[in-house]
Design a protein around this nucleic acid. Structure first.
Lengths: 181, 181
DNA sequence: AGTCTCATGTAAGCCGTTACATGATTCA
DNA sequence: TGAATCATGTAACGGCTTACATGAGACT
């Protein structure tokens, strides 16, 4: 997949001005079920976006403070973002070592399978809680921002996905413990 | 994520002897919802596994035919695989440009959103059908191989996932068309 | 005084895709 | 005979993670 970091940053900055650190947090906390970025991509990309006039530094009142820079999107950035929105998507890339092990497991690995299922279940439940929290936060502000409706739609997919994962792994564990498998 | 191709190949070869090409097909057809590999990884990895005595060439009857080589796993390969099975998993990596656009969409992109939802829906339905086909194929052979029970468990997750994706996108499209959003 | 979170940034190196090259076999 | 699928392989390039470096502010 070609460089997409640009669009993630631009997309998030349409909504509110954020620092590089805050952008990373937003991606980790709200988008982790379908996307991730590292600082090694974010900071260099912000620099390039600034050079290309797609974002601007939001001048903070504090003088001589060079750290903590909030960025805002420019019209040029907006138009680049909108162009991307209309382009065709590249195909998804996914790699889940847990699911790989579940796929490759058999009766000779029952102990390992059980261990990984337990970890997977805990992780799914935790992520589910994180997204539910975000949902509550958004529904508490209904009407404030129009595009929350769209955010809630994709969030509901993330929630249902985590529900599926946690239920599936719980049931699988039950079967193993009952010696059904 | 560190190189995992080795374990995918080893894991698949535990079940049956396959060529590099067949390994690629198996990954594409049955594991695409959580994994993918390219020829550029598979062939060099097979070479290394052979050098490291983790796999062997399955001597085919045809003499002087150097193409179409089936590989079988060795005891050494099996033990490396089992060791990996018990190790901790690295965290998943996921990148879905479609979901990224769904997350970043708002009322100014309704047309693009609709277009991408339609493509996404079609893709989910197609994948669902592919997995259902594989499931039918496996249930037709129940009892033949013990580990089909485990395969059916993870397959059912893939099926439920695709059902979720296709239902979610269908409902989302309905809402847009009814002007609810 | 020490730890944690916030905050920014770079460079090396790994991993994996893509593009290219080649040829056999099957089917229409 | 031409197209599609089966089949194997390599090399260059690009993208991303990891490790490292640095420091402020908040809290204990």
């Amino acid at each position: 997949m070609k460089r997409k970091t640009k669009y993630v940053l631009l997309g998030l900055l349409r909504d509110e001005s954020l620092t590089g650190y805050e952008l990373k947090s937003a991606i980790d906390n709200r988008m982790s079920f379908f996307w991730q970025e590292s600082y090694g991509q974010i900071y260099p990309e912000l620099k390039m976006l600034l050079e290309d006039k797609m974002i601007d530094v939001l001048s903070d009142n504090n003088e001589t403070k060079h750290d903590k820079v909030k960025y805002k999107i420019t019209n040029r950035g907006l138009s680049v973002f909108n162009k991307w929105m209309n382009e065709e998507n590249e195909k998804d890339t996914v790699r889940s070592e847990a699911l790989l092990k579940f796929f490759l497991a058999d009766s000779t690995n029952l102990d390992a399978l059980t261990k990984h299922l337990e970890i997977y279940n805990k992780h799914s439940v935790d992520l589910l809680e994180l997204y539910l929290q975000y949902e509550r936060q958004l529904t508490g502000l209904v009407g404030v921002h129009d595009n929350h409706k769209y955010l809630l739609e994709i969030l509901s997919l993330g929630i249902k996905q985590q529900e599926l994962y946690s239920q599936w792994s719980r049931e699988y564990l039950k079967k193993i413990k009952r010696n059904v498998l």
